[in-house]
């Protein structure tokens, strides 16, 4: 896998705050990479650094093979960025906004017209194209900003809160588009988001940032295995062995962190994490308990996120 983004010990300080702190990670070609973190975690700052818009305090990075500090213009010709605020010229029409940026991104003159129409259709803005953007709703501006980011078919797309302000249908449409861009057209997507459900659904891998520092990195499944510390599990066993099993479960406080509950023929317990499942199974089998079924309740990134957050809190 080729890395399109390589970040090494990247740090950016503002007066008192360290917005990005010793960040190191890689993003691979064709992947949808989720960049998660609380407000002020340093996501937007990272996007700015990766596009050579601001300078790092220390550390190095390579984006599409370029050093953003040195080859900013060449790099930016191949990246597309949806900024956090749509930053549209509200006094201009949607069409004018797009056509000026088509010029700035050097979209060939003969293609401009077709490309703009295509995107306006894609984002359902065709019939409002000649109106001033100032009169647009928040979601319409957001859609227009997405269209602008895609004008030059960038191979690396940064989306800072892509679906914020969009209604569920528009958000769904944008998510479909992101998947299509990555899966079918081979674009790489760097997605800053707070929406954990979306991240879980869309992203191949996610990074979690906390106060500028990387605290977790991996596929959503890896992260849930690694960080979820409370896992509800249902165990179906032979009815006659229930009392004995309860006894065993109560004797394993490291694995089983709640009092087992009997629910219609099965036992429900809270385990201390995913790794506790094979451990517990091994013990039960060893004790000759006949296990018919063991099922963990689905976990998600949200739990990872809160687990990480709790971890931080307890350290402080």
């Amino acid at each position: 896998m080729t890395a399109v983004i390589k970040i090494n010990q990247l740090t950016r300080c503002f007066k008192e705050t360290t917005a990005v702190d010793q960040l190191s990670l890689e993003v691979f070609a064709g992947e949808i990479f989720g960049f998660l973190g609380h407000n002020g975690a340093g996501k937007t700052t990272t996007v700015r650094l990766l596009n050579g818009v601001i300078e790092p305090t220390s550390g190095s990075m390579r984006v599409l093979g370029f050093d953003p500090q040195v080859d900013g213009p060449a790099l930016r010709a191949r990246t597309g960025v949806l900024t956090e605020t749509p930053s549209m010229d509200e006094r201009l029409t949607a069409w004018d906004n797009l056509s000026i940026y088509a010029d700035l991104y050097r979209v060939p003159r003969v293609e401009v017209h077709k490309r703009i129409n295509e995107l306006l259709d894609e984002f359902d803005l065709a019939d409002r194209a000649k109106e001033r953007v100032g009169g647009y709703s928040k979601g319409m501006k957001q859609r227009l900003a997405l269209a602008r980011a895609l004008l030059h078919k960038p191979e690396l797309l940064f989306l800072d809160e892509a679906t914020s302000g969009l209604d569920p249908i528009a958000a769904h449409h944008v998510n479909d588009l992101i998947v299509r861009l990555a899966r079918r057209e081979g674009h790489t997507v760097f997605l800053c988001t707070h929406n954990l459900v979306e991240a879980q659904k869309l992203c191949d891998r996610v990074a979690v940032l906390e106060h500028g520092r990387l605290v977790a990195l991996g596929t959503p499944a890896e992260l849930t295995r690694q960080y979820v510390r409370r896992l509800d599990v249902q165990i179906e066993i032979n009815e006659e062995q229930i009392e004995g099993t309860l006894h065993i479960l109560r004797s394993l406080p490291r694995l089983v962190i709640s009092e087992p509950v009997r629910t219609n023929g099965a036992l429900t317990v809270t385990l201390s994490g995913h790794e506790a499942i094979p451990d517990l199974l091994e013990i039960l089998v060893h004790k000759s308990i006949r296990v018919y079924r063991i099922a963990a309740k689905e976990t998600n990134l949200e739990q990872v996120y809160f687990a990480l957050h709790d971890e931080k809190e307890s350290v402080q």
């Binding site: 596009n51 213009p73 930016r76 960025v81 900024t83 010229d89 509200e90 700035l104 991104y105």
Partner: peptide, 14 residues
């Protein structure tokens, strides 16, 4: 102030 500059900064201009 209007925050219209940011998108311009991401264009391939020097």
């Amino acid at each position: 102030e209007r925050k219209t500059m940011e998108a311009l900064l991401y264009t391939p201009t020097t």
